[in-house]
Nucleic acid binder design. Sequence first.
RNA 1: GUCCCGUUCGUCUAGAGGCCUAGGACACCGGGUUUUCAUCCCGGCAACAGGGGUUCGACUCCCCUACGGGAUGCCA
Length: 462
Amino acid sequence: MKAIVTRFAPSPTGTLHIGGVRTALFNYVYAKQNNGKFLIRIEDTDTERSTKEYEKNILDNLTSIGLKPDEDPINQSERNEIYLKAAEKIFQSGNAYWCDCSQEELEEMRKAQIAAGKKPMYDGRSRNLGLEKSDKTVLRLATPEDGEIIVNDLIRGEIKFNNNELDDLILLRSDGSPTYHLCNVVDDYEQKVTTVIRGEDHISNTPRQIHIQNALGYPELEYAHLPLVLGTDKKRLSKRNAATSLEEYRDRGYLDSAILNALARLGWSQGENDVFYMNDLIKEFNIKDVQKAGAIFDITKLDWLNSQHLANLSIESFKEQLQPFLQQLDIDIENHENSNKLIEAMRTSDNTLSGIAKSLIPYYKDIKEYDEKAIKKFINDKNILTEIRDLLDKIDIWNQEVIDSVLKEYQLKNELSVPEVNQPIRIALTGSTKSPGLGLTLSIFTKNKAIERINKLLDKLS
RNA sequence: GUCCCGUUCGUCUAGAGGCCUAGGACACCGGGUUUUCAUCCCGGCAACAGGGGUUCGACUCCCCUACGGGAUGCCA
């Protein structure tokens, strides 16, 4: 069995797209589970739209999320001679010809075809003219006029195309530069790619590319066309309907492993198990089981997966992941009497790291704003707070159990309801009524700090 | 228009002719645990696009229709 080689071939015309990550992921996993190689090729033949910044963004992000190629990426823009040589070979074999139709002429032709109810396609009018190369000619592939081409797709099975549906595509532009189809086919061959895993939008390109392969005498490839990632409007995921850039998701506090999990789960499932990691994927993934229909990318599922991945982290790696988000809020994670206890208590407060970081603010910084509605609702009698403060102040061993029992005793002795005792303290300490268990919350702070916060609220109320 | 691909709960999916009274997960709703919030636990709601075949039997196979998507570039 020959070694599998897959590739991800992005155009650097934007930052790394979440859909691109999924394509790259499936390529990566398929290669790895077959002990093969995963390659990256930068398709930057569109010099107008391609930039080095985008290229760097794509490469950096792929690597950092764990989809590292097994060889250095190649750039199509640096491989012109190779494509030109291939084009020459096709021309020499009689499978291509020069065509001098102007863009206007082609435009008119298409309009006429549409008007006549026909499929707009190049009609091959220059095919037998025997034109010579000039600065006005493009090189076109002479596609077989009849017969059919069968694309064997790992996911969809056989897909048939009639050759008469395919027109003579352009191999070389009039400025001499090679087009996407040519470069793509030549590079797959040169990079010894065996398996092309790409988006469903490329299905109709496939028979055309096979014709180029045939003209060049290249071996057949394996194909797998992935269903598209859709936005909630069922249209393909784009900036119009969702965040599309991988970086945006990372910035919002989603773990790489959760993003990958969510993306893999979109179109593929592993029994009844929803939470999995790269290792599981490499072990269990089967490209033949990939769904055929496009799938909507649902952020709530990502939220949940993220919470699961977050929960599976050790306290050390959780802190490590959280660090940058706290830094953004100008918080030093260790700048707290009891940071481990605090983080452990608060790590389930939100589904994302940025959300968790936000909910930690009251523990690191002075309370700027109190929840006024809560104050109204729970603090009718300031004396309760004063008395509790004094009781707390007398505690010698400042820990969760002692604090809890002191509060309980006070509550029972004064025949108060639990919220009457607890909520005011909570508001004093965090500004809101949301916090971990009271004894725990109090013990996270030093006694002095806790008293100080209660006093501050009392001041405000007086 | 033409060609291609597709269509199971709101969403992601299981389902390879009888195992389906269509299963799971997320979301949602209700209950419990937690003195609050979150976590966690339990329960509930909810789908085979429609119509014809084939078959003793169809979510599963075939055909048609509808709907959705993709392609139809000297973009990739």
